[in-house]
């Protein structure tokens, strides 16, 4: 496998069992994402975008098929090793921010570094919060921050672990357009600056169009890249 390939999936299929039937959420999905690329996964609700994101980020295991994150076949790893890989390669930004309510902004951003035992976690975190323009909010708790500010903290947290790949699930979904723009600019700015691969799931046409490539999902399969389909 070439090293400039960040993510590769082969015949990825994911099914879930419900009381009545077996639902196929992803059906034979094969994609490749090269290092430094920015990719938007788009599609209607229920098309399997988030499931695909979860699988390629190593948050879940597919029913069949393989996921490679750099040299690691995530499908063959147990949760312990997948977590290791996530810690080394991956950062996340979520639609609902998912900041830890009991931690201040600074502590939230320090957390990835602390988990790795990084002694400079605090200094780095301060730096990143500075970069997202929140140096005056270091000691604030999430509940004391606006939605836009919370998402900026989340972005700082994601980049604080200097990930090779940043996954974002509807990063602007809960924000107004002004805040959405600020967060988008931050994501792409930092992406460029750190050479991170950016994979995001979004309904936001503007956001999708800023990516170098779009993958359109439909009923669990990949369709040709087309303009976004609105719900």
């Amino acid at each position: 496998m070439k090293t400039n390939l960040a993510i590769k999936t082969q015949n990825l299929t994911h099914t879930v069992k419900t009381a009545e039937e077996e639902l196929t959420i992803l059906n034979d999905v094969s994609i490749q994402i090269t290092e430094g690329e920015s990719v938007a996964i788009v599609g209607a609700s229920g098309s399997g975008k988030s499931t695909l994101l979860g699988l390629i980020a190593g948050l879940d295991v597919s029913s069949s098929g393989d996921v490679f994150l750099y040299d690691h076949n995530l499908s063959a790893l147990d949760e312990e090793s997948r977590a290791d890989v996530r810690g080394k390669y991956v950062g996340f930004v979520f639609q609902s921010f998912h900041l830890l309510p009991s931690l201040t902004a600074l502590e939230n951003v320090m957390l990835p570094g602390e988990l790795k035992g990084d002694k400079e976690a605090k200094q780095k975190a301060t730096e990143f919060l500075n970069q997202v323009g929140l140096s005056h909010r270091l000691q604030h708790y999430p509940r004391q921050l606006s939605g836009g500010e919370q998402q900026r903290v989340a972005v700082a947290r994601a980049f604080a672990s200097t990930p090779k790949v940043l996954f974002a699930d509807e990063p602007t979904g809960n924000l107004d357009s002004d805040n959405g723009k600020i967060v988008t600019d931050l994501l792409f700015g930092l992406n460029e600056k750190q050479g991170t691969t950016l994979v995001l799931v979004t309904h936001d046409q503007g956001l999708a169009q800023r990516c170098s490539r779009q993958i359109l999902m439909s009923s669990g399969r990949i369709s040709e890249p087309t303009p976004l389909v609105e719900e």
């Binding site: 996530r86 810690g87 830890l100 990835p112 988990l115």
Partner: peptide
Amino acid sequence: LTQVAVIKTLGATPKK
């Protein structure tokens, strides 16, 4: 629940 899940996405292993 969610907090632990978030920490896991940050790379904390189940052992950790």
